[in-house]
């Protein structure tokens, strides 16, 4: 296994083109574990540690945020982003343990695309735009289109995720991330990421994405629509939860059976909506 330490994105693209099956190494908090366990044996690793600028988190004047792919989960957890973008910080705070968050990166976690991980549903709920660069240039994908299947993203061979762009959160927007896990720091049995825009107690728009309920973060137009232009009354919240429950197609594993996961979806959705709404009602 060869290891390369490029300093520019162009060099990374060149190395990916030159080495079949090469892997990019960011924080290594999943990749090195997989190497140690013998689950992966790539012919080449391309370290992103020395690539200039990838670890920047930029706050724009309009409230939008651009974060490089190697921003650490700890940096995101501490960023205290405004409005709906708070969903990202809450998810990052719940990734594993301090040592993992200190080195694990946002881009690494998103590219690993584990549907039980915390960041993918949060970035879908925040309507993030992902910037991918490859031999044919740059393109931008929605987070919803970025996640394709278990451990599979829409990145083509030779492409890397370089940055994630978050739109300016609308006035009155709030976000929350709730995870049900068996023990502190574990992957989700089920998780709920929600962003909403509230106007005098009326929900103008909502985006809900579930973790651990499908091969990728589960979002439903119908569930989001069930909350739009409502006062988030119990019936509307229950309807959104029921639609998501019906669409959920979770795995059964040591963190819960598929049936158990489906059963806790409506309750966790209601609690996440309640947590987000409480922020709108709290004095700023």
């Amino acid at each position: 296994m060869q290891i390369f330490h490029p300093t520019t994105v162009d060099e990374v693209i060149g190395l990916l083109a030159a080495h079949d099956e090469a892997r990019c190494l960011a924080g290594g908090q999943t990749l090195v574990a997989m190497l140690n366990l013998g689950l992966l044996d790539p012919p080449a690793l391309i370290s992103l540690r020395k690539v200039a600028g990838l670890d920047r988190l930029i706050r724009h004047a309009d409230g939008g945020v651009t974060m490089g792919a190697t921003v650490t989960q700890a940096a995101l957890a501490a960023a205290d982003l405004p409005g709906a973008l708070a969903v990202l910080g809450e998810a990052a705070q719940q990734v594993a343990h301090p040592a993992i968050r200190n080195f694990g990166t946002v881009g690494g976690a998103l590219c690993h695309a584990d549907p039980a991980a915390d960041l993918p549903p949060a970035f879908v709920a925040a309507d993030a735009r992902m910037t991918a660069i490859g031999p044919d240039g740059e393109r931008s994908l929605s987070a919803g289109d970025f996640f394709v299947d278990y451990l599979t993203t829409a990145l083509a061979d030779g492409e890397i995720l370089t940055e994630i762009r978050l739109p300016p959160p609308p006035p009155g927007s709030v976000g929350a991330y709730l995870k049900f896990a068996r023990v502190d720091g574990d992957y989700a049995t089920v998780s709920v990421a929600v962003t909403m825009t509230l106007e005098n107690g009326v929900c103008r728009a909502a985006r809900i994405a579930l973790g651990s309920c499908a091969a990728r973060p589960l979002r439903l137009d119908a569930a989001d629509a069930a909350l739009a232009d409502t006062g988030l009354d119990a019936d509307s919240v229950a309807r959104a939860g029921a639609l998501l429950q019906e669409a959920a197609d979770p795995l059964a594993d040591m963190r819960g059976t598929a049936d158990y996961r489906r059963r806790i979806v409506p309750g966790l959705v209601a609690r996440a909506i309640g947590a987000a709404r409480a922020k709108a009602e709290a004095p700023a």
Binding site: L25, G28, V32, A33, L35, A99, I100, F103
Partner: peptide
Amino acid sequence: TARACLMLAAD
């Protein structure tokens, strides 16, 4: 705080 087992030595 770091996991020494998850830091690749060459990195």
